[in-house]
Write a protein that binds this DNA or RNA. Structure first.
Lengths: 335, 335
DNA sequence: ATGAAAGCGCTAACAA
DNA sequence: TTGTTAGCGCTTTCAT
């Protein structure tokens, strides 16, 4: 029980061949006679052998592992992204290591350091902060390809992400066209230095011929539904109260809806609500919620493709590439 | 740019010491003079050195990595579990590899094989099927500790999980006491060989002095909200229709609620709904949903603790331990 | 057709 | 206090 695992050497001794021959046989080398190979494969099966990937990695300096660093997997968008990424990697024969930063740059640094020492072949990063990303650049420059899933302006890093400016623009254009003139914007990104959605909102409001004051900005104290819930009390105290709400994530929107339900605000009759980050949960979630489709699935697929291509190219690498995917509104009975 | 990473040897050459001394210095050996250590640390920093964990793992036959295999991370319960597990592992200085089986035993086998060849120190498994688990036992017996997050009867494997029988019992006892006599049970576990919830339901119904026919069993065609949605059409066609619904996961319940909303069924007035697997989403989710608290958080914490203890004990291992956590009902305005 | 030897980057045992 | 040697399990020349 729990005897040491079989090694090449054990198979070698069991069959009378050398470790080298065993290695060749297991990898199906054509230059070995049928007979020899079968003998070895049989012994391997009998000894319950399976290869030690760690040793192989050490020889090749390639681990076929990639690291995924995310802020918080409880955010349904990121959950979906994580799932798709794992699937794609698995199909490509890569293993995935996972770490959560909880939006803390310190945690993110630690995770990246961990992954580097584990010699991952590349990393997909959903960064904690839009301003502090030197540690990410350093990793990339030291030779471990990094792909960002959020656009960090001027980072010079490879990126595949949603065009949040365009997404917020579409949401606000839609609300303006519905006649709303007082739109609350519950925006969790500002504190982390992300003003993309704000810029899109402003553009839409301006194009509609409205004053910028049509947008009432609020910052939640976190990203969970509870924070959306808490913020609503403040929001609805405004005079006059908004007739529409844009929430920068579905999680916040869900909390906001909960507050409305408890406080007798009918959605969408009394308050139109637009979320951001469409996921299965909200799609089938019995919530009167129009959302901007973050398309986490699509960026994940494209992102994995991209980084694997880069890893497999090794030396030859061109300019960093920033790919923005434009999201669409998913209309339901809201707004 | 992308020059090969610095190794101990490089620092050795840069400082004039031997690789061994450098290794000692970097690990803070007390038997080195202050001066030497500083010299070496400085050079290491200058060369941007960080340790190659792969090489270290090869020497120690210990990777400080554990593998997590789950059916589907989109299930909010499992999302929460994954997060907690990652956190706990990270605190303990372990890295986590992740793989999803999508409830396919084939995928699960592949994932486990992958993890074994990556030499993980242990695995946490949320199994795909309640009957086929030989491949899991084999891994454990071959010396890689496995901890199950679902109880597989007679598996003889270490387990930390929710007592689903007790959970379903409480849910049905509650519904019976509210006067319900026709309770639909949307149960996604049966197809996979899990009858725990069914047993709990039967017990409650019997104790209430009702016939077993008070339970109307339905099997969804999958685990996503969409499957709960689809099943509802069949469920509400029954004559007479049920006055209460028990859904074996919150995802199914969410889909069911969506169907109710689209079909003018008021919850909980027309139909009481009890879900299973309480998560943040449903807690703040603006849904009139009573749920059984799966306590994914708690089992994850206990589970990680357990497996790390076992790993660190190495040789000495006693009888397998099955720990059942009893869930509670989270009442809201439903039922 | 098969084997011997060297080496991936690191650590541990033993010398000096 | 520091260096030398051997070896973790595997792959890769290069011999035979």
């Amino acid at each position: 029980m729990a005897r040491p695992r079989a090694r090449l050497k054990d198979i070698a001794e069991a069959t009378g061949f050398s470790a080298n021959t065993v290695s060749l046989a297991l990898r199906g080398s054509p230059r070995l006679p049928e007979e020899t190979r079968e003998l070895i494969l049989e012994a391997a099966a009998r000894l319950n052998y399976f290869p030690n990937h760690i040793a192989r990695s050490l020889v090749h300096s390639v681990t076929r592992t990639i690291g995924l660093v995310m802020t918080d997997i409880m955010n349904p968008t990121l959950t979906l992204a994580a799932r798709t990424i794992e699937r794609q990697l698995s199909l490509a024969g890569y293993a995935m290591m996972f770490a959560a930063s909880d939006s803390s740059v310190e945690n993110e640094k630690r995770a990246i350091g961990l992954f580097l020492s584990y010699q991952v072949d590349g990393m997909l990063i959903y960064p904690a902060n839009h301003r502090e990303y030197d540690h990410i650049k350093v990793a990339d420059e030291a030779g471990t390809p990094v792909l960002l899933l959020v656009d960090l302006p001027d980072s010079g890093l490879d990126t595949v992400t949603i065009d949040d400016r365009a997404g917020a623009y579409k949401a606000f254009r839609y609300l303006c066209r519905q006649g709303h003139r007082a739109i609350a914007m519950l925006d969790g990104g500002r504190a982390l230095g992300n003003f993309d959605k704000m810029h899109g909102a402003l553009q839409a409001v301006r194009e509609a011929g409205l004053s910028e004051e049509a947008i009432m900005v609020f910052e939640p104290e976190g990203h969970a539904p509870a924070h959306g819930f808490a913020a609503m009390a403040r929001i609805m105290e405004s005079a006059p109260p908004p007739t529409a709400l844009f929430a920068s994530t579905d999680s916040l929107a869900i909390g906001a809806l909960h507050w409305c339900r408890e406080n007798g605000i009918a959605v969408p009759q009394d308050l139109a609500v637009v979320g951001y980050d469409n996921t299965e949960i909200s799609q089938y979630g019995a919530l009167p919620l129009t959302t901007v489709n973050y398309a986490a699935d699509e960026i994940s697929r494209i992102g994995v493709d991209r980084i694997l291509k880069r890893i497999e190219n090794r030396g030859s690498w061109k300019a960093p590439d920033i790919r923005l995917i434009e999201p669409e509104l998913i209309l339901r009975d809201s707004a």
